[in-house]
């Protein structure tokens, strides 16, 4: 079994789609090929990889309730390519949105299913993830915490001859557990989807989210945007006004 994993985020690196695809790959036992779809220049390279594949997994961001335009362009090419070469793949998709409700990704998964019907491919199912951006930010926070923990261990070891700062380690373990909890839904459904991909089976679409109530999520998101609007300067340029 060969599976092509396509990160279809237009961002060069550090996008939520990349993170979710990395997690999904962990749950698949097959020959895994990684691909990145950003522009038209990527089309022919990716299509060639599909020739010898059994399945393909798209990971993409939700753009205005649907699929980003650069991914739609690729799908049209893929339909023609599959028909021309008699290719029929199992297609899976992971869609992530900034809103907290995973269900808001339904349109994306439905369009992929329609695409499969038209292109002669087989829809294998997908996952809609809410709060994908925040899950991704959590990953970055975890990385920062690892660096800080190592710095603390080194500092305490060198200056206080204490190479096991229990308080700092405990705080780090708690942080890891909290982040794991936020990701529980993603891990569960990616485990199920991964099993289906490994076996070449189809599953029903699943919807999940970061494990935070929306009344907490929304103020956090607003604070995030507020801070970045100050840093980037938009807040001083008629941030909320009609233009």
């Amino acid at each position: 079994m060969t599976t092509v994993f396509i990160n279809a985020s237009p961002k060069k690196k550090l996008g939520a789609s990349e993170y979710l695809l990395k997690v999904q790959r962990l749950f698949v036992r097959a020959k895994k090929i990684k691909e990145k779809l950003m522009t038209k220049a990527d089309h022919s390279r990716i299509l060639e990889k599909l020739k010898d594949a059994d399945s393909v997994v798209f990971s993409l961001p939700l753009y205005v309730d649907g699929i980003p335009s650069h991914v739609l362009e690729f799908m049209e090419k893929m339909e023609l390519f599959c028909k021309e070469h008699g290719i029929s793949l199992k297609v899976y998709a992971i869609s992530n949105g900034g809103f907290i409700e995973g269900k808001q990704n339904k349109g994306v998964l439905d369009v992929f299913k329609n695409f499969c019907l038209r292109s002669g491919n087989e829809w294998g199912g997908g996952i809609g993830v809410g709060g994908g951006v925040m899950l991704h930010v959590m990953r970055l926070v975890l990385r920062l915490q690892i660096v800080l923990l190592l710095a603390r261990v080194l500092y305490n070891g060198i200056f206080n001859d204490d190479w096991l700062p229990t308080k700092a380690i405990n705080r780090f373990v708690v942080s890891v557990l909290v982040i794991l909890f936020f990701n529980l839904g993603v891990f569960l459904f990616m485990h199920l989807l991964g099993r289906a991909i490994t076996k070449g089976m189809a599953v029903k679409n699943k919807y999940t989210r970061i494990m935070i109530p929306s009344f907490i999520f929304i103020p956090i998101a607003a604070t995030f945007f507020f801070v970045f609007s100050i840093i980037k300067g938009g807040i001083f340029k008629g941030w909320l006004r009609k233009k």
Binding site: M75, I218, W239
Partner: peptide, 25 residues
């Protein structure tokens, strides 16, 4: 009709129009 959604040319315009909303939710 593009698999039940907009053509890529139209969707591109919609994607580039998110500034019609504000950051607040």
């Amino acid at each position: 009709n593009f698999y039940g959604t907009y053509s890529p040319e139209i969707k591109n315009i919609i994607d580039r129009s998110i500034g019609i909303s504000t950051t607040f939710s």
